[in-house]
Amino acid sequence: MSLEVMLNAAGLAFVVAGARWHQADAQVMFLFILAMAAAEVSVGLAMVLEIYHRFKSLDVDKLSEMRG
């Protein structure tokens, strides 16, 4: 979720800059960010589901099998 917030904030910055200089490129950039966020969310949530089913909890600290 925080990731979504961050992506949103970046897109906001882009759009503001585009509005300041009256260029369409910013909104195009925001579109790309949107597409990327969608893809990332779907894959990420699928992974969350997988982790939950394997580790039976959403505690990220339990995912430290690659320790050391």
Binding site: A38, A39, S42, V43, A46, M47, L49
Partner: peptide, 9 residues
């Protein structure tokens, strides 16, 4: 993303 999500799920 679609293929990945499908495979993971």
């Amino acid at each position: 993303g679609l293929v990945g999500a499908y495979h993971l799920g």
